[in-house]
Computed example of a mutant assay.
Amino acid sequence: MNDAVDSTEGDDPTARQRRVWDAGAAHYDRQMAFFEKIWFGGGRGWVGERARGRVLEIAPGTGRNLPYYRADVTLTGVELSPAMLAIARRRAADLGLDADLREGDAEHLPLPDASFDTVVCALALCSIPDPAAAIGEMRRVLVPGGRLLLVDHVVSTWPPIRAAQWLLERWTIRSAGEYFTRRQLPLVEAAGFEIVAVERLKAGSIERVHASKPGPA
Rank of each mutant, 00 (worst) to 15 (best):
M1S: 14
E9W: 04
E9V: 14
E9R: 13
G10V: 11
D11K: 01
A15L: 15
A23Y: 06
A23C: 06
H27C: 02
Y28L: 05
D29A: 09
E36G: 11
E36W: 04
K37M: 09
R44I: 02
G45W: 05
W46D: 10
E49L: 11
E49F: 01
R50T: 12
G53R: 09
E57D: 10
G61W: 03
G61D: 04
T62R: 07
T62A: 06
G63R: 07
P67Y: 08
P67M: 07
R70S: 14
D72I: 05
T74H: 11
T74D: 12
L75Q: 12
G77I: 01
L80M: 10
A83D: 13
L85R: 14
I87N: 06
A88N: 08
G96P: 11
G96Y: 11
G96T: 11
R102K: 09
G104W: 11
D105M: 03
A106D: 09
L109F: 13
L109C: 09
P112R: 12
F116D: 02
D117W: 05
C121H: 01
A124N: 06
S127E: 08
I128Q: 00
D130N: 14
P131Y: 05
A132M: 05
A132K: 04
P144C: 07
G145C: 11
G146Q: 01
G146E: 01
L150I: 15
L150T: 01
H153N: 10
H153R: 01
V155D: 11
V155L: 09
V155Q: 14
S156R: 04
T157I: 04
I161C: 02
A163F: 12
Q165A: 09
W171M: 12
R174P: 04
G177P: 08
F180N: 02
R183H: 13
R183V: 00
Q184W: 01
L185C: 06
L185I: 01
L187D: 06
V188N: 00
E189Y: 00
G192I: 00
A197S: 15
A197Q: 15
V198H: 09
L201K: 14
L201F: 06
A203W: 13
A203E: 07
R208H: 14
V209F: 02
H210M: 10
A211S: 02
G215Y: 06
G215K: 06
G215I: 03
A217I: 03
